[in-house]
């Protein structure tokens, strides 16, 4: 999970790129909620059966 400062920076940039430039009023709480959601997506990633399968050889690639 990203640290607070890193998450805050990413959120500012990401929301601006998405055309969603209005910064949440209570930004600290928003960042914490984002980190909470990131923990959920990480949990789903760990449970996922969709895994990256690297090519076994140059021919497969």
């Amino acid at each position: 999970m990203p640290e607070y400062d890193e998450a805050a920076q990413w959120l500012h940039e990401h929301l601006a790129r998405q055309g969603l430039g209005v910064v949440p009023a209570r930004f600290e709480g928003f960042v914490l909620a984002y980190q909470h959601l990131q923990a959920m997506t990480e949990h789903l990633r760990q449970r996922s059966q969709i895994a990256v399968q690297p090519a076994a050889s140059a021919d497969d690639a």
Binding site: L11, H14, P24, R26, F30
Partner: peptide, 14 residues
Amino acid sequence: GQALHDALLLGATL
């Protein structure tokens, strides 16, 4: 409203 706005923005991070 502020609460819904901020909650919906979380969806943009997925």
